[in-house]
Amino acid sequence: MIVIAIKDFIIRKGLESILRKNNMQHKIICIKSSLELKQLLLDERPRLVYVDNNRLEEFSLLQKEKAIILVEIFKEKTSVHSANTMNHILCIDGEEVEINRQIKQHLDLYENSAERKKSDSELSDRETDILREVALGKTNKEIADYLFISAHTVITHRKNITRKLGIKTVSGLTVYAILNKIIQMEEM
């Protein structure tokens, strides 16, 4: 997920539409305050965040999250940027080609981040175990007892399974499990 935390409406909307043109597959969310950010960090796991360079303090929460790629927005080019930080800034005074080039770099960083690779790949073995039990109709509590883990862990696994497969309901998961031979029809 990509987050845009920029104060100016026009810049926020503009960046959002440019990002959408460059990549269709990621969720993009615009937020205005650090309060919204707090809520967002609780519910989701943003990976790439655009933020005004003069509001970094307000969004200091972000710097603690190591997995997040933080891109600062500058209204115009400054000379202070070293080659190191060039990937993590966006100067908005350029022409289309220049802006797209910068955004491409951010998206590359995002695509290549280890965290993302891990979280978007196939089901882990553990998740497959959980999916099997879910498909057989067991409740979270039953699964937890059977696999010797907490109910909370089961719920986390289920969330990840749903996110990876794009299937939300138990009957949908059952169909998936049968099609992929994780369970047999006779077991039902």
Binding site: L165, G166, I167, K168, T169, S171, G172, V175, Y176, L179, N180
Partner: peptide, 16 residues
Amino acid sequence: ESKLFDLKNILIKYLP
């Protein structure tokens, strides 16, 4: 709504 969503994904991604 969830069930419809699931059925779409099954047809798009998971049926052979």
